[in-house]
Design a protein around this nucleic acid. Structure first.
Length: 516
RNA sequence: CGGGGAGUGGCUCAGUCUGGUAGAGCGUCGGCUUUGGGAGCCGAGGGUCGCAGGUUCGAAUCCUGUCUCCCCGACCA
């Protein structure tokens, strides 16, 4: 898609790779190498893996089956973790009365600039096409939810009256809309899918514990399932969620050394309870405002996944979230077809119950072409089965992240062996990501060192810091680095040190980085 | 909203300067042949050249207007 100055021309999410020399079939077009142009590499990987397509509406993406399947795997795993911690799912409406958004002052300020607003309920045909019918204007405009705190707290006000109604632990899986100026697939889209947990508690302590508990759930999920080694921390006031008292975050570090906020968990204090007048009678008979949390992760996690593990050959998916964990590619000449396919059926039978297996039996493609396709799509393990393998009762195997192929004996605990191989890959991906992150994490104590470091070695920069929003803004304006968080671990190190920027006594250890 | 660029089959583009029957590669469809790392041959379908006016015997091409998209900046899970 070279046009103009070599820039992407179609809407943000190319169905085809960003660069397409005329005459090259898509499958042979190279994925732009990471070290050449990281953001184009990202778009190329997504295009080659067929995860999304562009939308006629700017900033929106169509999640294609393979892309949606990755989200589904994320969703299924997280949903089980939410249930295991006592939460239940519910669903709140897409539309929020406009007036609700003005009830919590900071909340308004945070979201007002990016809300889609519905003003009419009917269209009218005109010679130039349909227009909103002027006669069908809504009395009160409706806001398409940018997040659901307001509608949920409105409802909680009706549901909560006694300490016996608490805690209320509800999650919803939903879409939200934030009218962003600039978008990138998965990382920032105008509409995205996410989950938002909203809980109500009788005490401050209980709510604070909930916010931290869910942060740990996110952390564990990222490490264990996505193999994305996120850091946990607290946001500064300027990066805090609009309306929160504290915002906790999980921050990942991508291969280009930029940080990515992967999820947040907020302690909301009594802000929303006051705004929506949600009170409960405690066991002493007194009326109190409830304490709240909210927490969410979104389809942005797919972006984190892509940018953490993928390589110049395309998408790499950890086995636990791979929609297809094993692809079987049969190889045969016409006279051997039945023999090979019978054996393929046997192997599928041995593996199909424990793994997500796909048999690629298309007969208009050569095996080699299939290999490249499934590698681009990030399938962790490929089994090649030809006449020779049938005779040996074995399969020829290739792991997405390893050079070389290896044989696996079909009659001797194949499924266990495959499980071992996939677990090994899952672990290897995490180890590699941790190693990359650690190699790109630095501790400096002067601002010059931060600025120089960000240029030569982008990454996480840990510094002693005196909490100060003005200085934070000045640094952001100067070198684009922001405080990703005050890490939960290691804050003791700030004691007795001076701020790397102001020279005043440090209050925190701060993690700086350039971020998406 | 400020600055830059682009709109031609599904995709990537040529053609526009210098007006004269709308093209190529890839993909798609059909047939034959092939299959242990990106197959080959033959054939077919597919575009009112973003839109609206104008100039002209004749407009993808020239003129005017307009819309949309992309990039950089301000905003952001």
């Amino acid at each position: 898609m070279l046009r103009g100055g070599g820039l992407l021309s179609r809407p943000c999410y190319p169905a085809r790779p960003a660069r397409a020399p005329a005459g090259e079939p898509m499958s042979k077009q190279p994925i732009t190498p990471r070290d050449q142009d990281y953001s184009r590499w990202y778009l190329d990987v997504i295009a080659h893996a067929d995860l999304v397509d562009s939308s006629p509406v700017r900033g929106c993406m169509v999640l294609k089956p393979h892309g949606y399947a990755v989200w589904e795997a994320i969703k299924d795993d997280l949903d089980a973790r939410f249930k295991a911690t006592g939460h239940v799912n519910a669903y709140f409406p897409l539309f929020i009365p406009q007036s609700f958004l003005s009830k919590e002052a900071e909340h308004v300020e945070g979201f007002a600039k990016e809300c889609a607003v519905v003003t009419h309920h009917r269209l009218k045909a005109t010679p130039d096409g349909v227009i909103p019918d002027p006669a069908a204007q809504l009395e009160e405009p409706l806001v398409v939810r940018p997040t659901s705190e307001t509608i949920i707290w409105h409802m909680y006000g009706r549901w909560i009256s006694s300490w016996r109604d608490l805690p209320l632990l509800i999650n919803q899986w939903a879409n939200v809309v934030r009218w962003e100026m600039r978008t990138r697939p998965f990382l920032r889209t105008a509409e995205f899918l996410w989950q938002e947990g909203h809980t109500a508690h009788a005490t401050r302590t209980e709510a604070e514990e909930e916010a931290q508990r869910m942060l740990q759930v996110y952390r564990d999920f990222c490490w264990e399932t996505l193999a994305v080694p996120v850091r946990t921390g607290v946001k500064t006031a300027s990066e805090r969620f609009a309306g929160a008292v504290d915002t906790y975050t999980i921050e990942g570090l991508m291969q280009n050394g930029w940080a990515l906020q992967c999820g947040t968990s907020h302690f909301l204090g009594q802000n929303f309870a006051r705004a929506f007048d949600v009170t409960f009678q405690n066991s002493d008979g007194d009326l109190e405002h409830v304490w709240a949390t909210s927490w969410g992760v979104s389809t942005r996690l797919v972006g984190a996944l892509i940018m953490t593990h993928s390589d110049d050959a395309g998408l790499v998916l950890p086995p636990r979230v791979a929609p297809i964990q094993i692809v079987i590619v049969p190889i045969y000449r016409a006279d051997k077809r039945d023999m090979v396919m019978d054996f393929v059926g046997k192997v599928r039978g041995l593996l199909g119950r424990r793994f997500r297996v796909h048999v690629d039996d298309r007969d208009n493609m050569k095996p080699g072409a299939k290999y490249f396709e499934w590698e681009r799509k990030g399938v962790p393990l490929r089994l090649e089965i030809g006449p020779r393998d049938v005779e040996n009762s074995a399969v020829f195997s290739k792991l997405r992240t390893q050079d070389g192929k290896f044989g696996l004996d079909v009659d001797d605990g194949l499924a266990d062996k495959v499980a071992e191989v996939l677990d090994g890959m899952q672990q290897a991906l995490l180890d590699a990501a941790v190693a990359r992150r650690d190699a790109a994490t630095f501790e400096v104590d002067s601002y010059d060192a931060l600025k120089a470091g960000l240029e030569s070695q982008p990454g996480f920069y840990l510094v002693p810091w005196k909490d100060d929003a003005d200085n934070e803004a000045a640094i952001k304006a100067d070198c684009k680095a922001t405080i990703r968080c005050y890490p939960l671990q290691g804050q003791d190190a700030a004691a007795g040190r001076t701020c790397f920027y102001s020279g005043e006594p440090a209050t925190h250890m701060a993690l700086f980085a350039r971020a998406y």
